[in-house]
């Protein structure tokens, strides 16, 4: 049986927690401050990076994960599968328009007759407000 040795570690005291809270508040200020600058496509990445530093502090100190390796594995494992979900979905979402069968030069129109990129009625494929064409 594995033991996480939670009890064997000295109990973290108020001083450490105080320091962490200070760091978190400072990082919140940085989050707001940094949002003024435009990093182009990296904007979200930068914001998420700062958030992740804050999240790591909360997880490691407030949630005691630095003394709790086993549960840290569980938690990081969960985040890993969330990453799989996002990235594998993006395999499709981000390549749907760019990767086409070799004999097609432009995106396939889902419903022939419907305008590309304009709203259509569900089911009929016709532009909104137009009567559906009933095939013979």
């Amino acid at each position: 049986m594995e033991h996480t040795h939670e009890h064997d570690h000295p109990i973290t005291g108020p001083k450490t927690y105080m320091t962490i809270l200070g760091a978190l508040v400072v990082l919140t200020v940085i989050t707001v401050w940094i949002a003024q600058f435009d990093f182009g496509a990296a904007n979200t990445v930068v914001a998420l990076l700062v958030a992740s530093i804050k999240g790591a502090l909360v997880a490691l100190f407030f949630m005691h994960l630095r003394h709790d390796k086993f549960n840290a594995v569980i938690f990081v494992g969960g985040l890993f599968f969330l990453g799989v979900f996002l990235i594998f979905s993006l395999f499709d979402i981000s390549t749907r328009q760019t990767v086409l069968p070799s004999n097609l030069k432009e995106p396939v129109q889902a419903f022939p007759g419907a305008p590309l990129g304009k709203p259509v009625q569900p089911g009929t494929g016709m532009p909104k407000g137009q009567a559906p064409v009933v095939p013979e």
Binding site: T31, N43, A47, L48, V50, A51, V58
Partner: peptide, 14 residues
């Protein structure tokens, strides 16, 4: 922790 991520994603988009 969830709010830490919600805050920049909702309030601070650029």
């Amino acid at each position: 922790l969830i709010w830490i991520y919600l805050f920049p994603l909702m309030y601070l988009l650029t």
